[in-house]
Design a protein around this nucleic acid. Structure first.
Lengths: 202, 202
DNA sequence: CGAAAATTTGACATGACTCAACTGGAGTGG
DNA sequence: CCACTCCAGTTGAGTCATGTCAAATTTTCG
């Protein structure tokens, strides 16, 4: 539903940051990326399905999360405008995903199918390069988050999140941020109170 | 010190898993990767230095870690035979690293310099592809570890580590594993005791 | 407006850390 | 072969960080 003729300008502008596409490559991108409009709370991936699309976000915001046996949601990733989201594991292994990807706001996305992306990699190697760089940058960020998780308290991680993602901190409810940080919403509320207390003691 | 004529067979065998190199590409790999012998406790990267090499491990074992203001060591990664290790952030940004990479066992490695790797990417696009895949797989693993960290107790994370890395669990002292899991060695000791207790109650 | 979700608060429970002491190998040099 | 040191590992007591549960309040969205 809601598929439309593709307008991949935002994607082309995105790739221009790394290795700009030539005319042929731009035309190929236009051919294989499909535009979709997504409602708030709509899923673009559900647990049990194979992740068959690589998704570029033109506007809006998504969360990717796992649900554990105790029925709790654990957010692995937020992604917004000019970012990618996909369960890489399921996408490449073709095995059922253990994750959900859900829109937190109405969104506009560009999606490419698994086999079309493999085709792009093979026929136009600049896509290999651009996607190498996309994943490298994501890896570096995840590594920083990992370091914070094994070396800092919940309060420090929250402050680091505020500093690195001021925009997200404004857009998202605290419950979601708590889930991302690996703490309970109640405890996040207590952290916030304690931070306010500190800044008043000037 | 200890540089030797390169014997890149293990590396070529490694790439064969993904996209095998042709004769020209093999010869290029041989030209740019340098072999080094590393002693136990020797560093191949120290905080403050720019990470100028991408390292493939032929044999041995390394840890990559950060040291925080309280002088504690936090292990971000272990890497062993047929794996890579490098501070991607410093390697690409050319800024001083915040990390150390240190040998936990005597090791044999193959290293390529920053500018030589960029050259390989540009002149032989199969390296773009192979490194895209290398980073994708590392990303998927790190994502699993991240999920464990935000959703599981220390005991569950330790059991998951034992299951996923039985080899490392045998090779490494518990102090190092505790640092990797983000807990204290004392607490790991108590976890071990509690696990033994459980398995006796059959 | 009305329902559902987010936030806050407090009492209590538990997970994980700190510190200090002790144990027991694995080298190393005599 | 012994004595010595040096780590890794263990243990226990006390403390701090974070979670659980339940309830009241506020905000958001349909």
């Amino acid at each position: 539903m809601a598929d439309q003729p593709s307008q991949p300008e935002p994607l082309i502008a995105y790739f221009r940051q790394y290795f700009p596409l030539n005319a042929v490559e731009k035309s190929e991108a236009g051919k294989f990326f499909t535009e979709r409009t997504i409602r708030r709370r709509q899923f673009i991936l559900q647990e049990g399905d194979v992740c068959n699309h690589f998704t570029f976000i033109v506007s809006g915001c998504f969360k990717m999360y796992a649900v554990t046996e105790d029925a709790k949601e654990h957010i692995l990733q937020f992604s917004t405008e000019n970012e990618w989201i996909s369960d890489l594991n399921s996408f490449y292994s073709r095995e059922p995903s253990k994750l959900f990807i859900e829109a937190l706001e109405p969104a506009l996305i560009l999606q490419i199918k698994h086999q079309d992306l493999l085709h792009l990699f093979t026929s136009h190697h600049k896509f290999d390069r651009n996607f190498r760089i996309v994943v490298e940058r994501a890896y570096i960020q995840l590594q920083e988050r990992m370091l914070a998780n094994i070396s800092s308290s919940a309060e420090q991680r929250y402050e680091q999140f505020l500093k690195n993602n001021p925009e997200l901190a404004r857009r998202l409810p605290g419950t979601q941020i708590a889930s991302y940080l690996g703490i309970t919403p109640e405890f996040l509320s207590k952290i916030r109170k304690s931070i306010v207390g500190k800044s008043h003691k000037s």
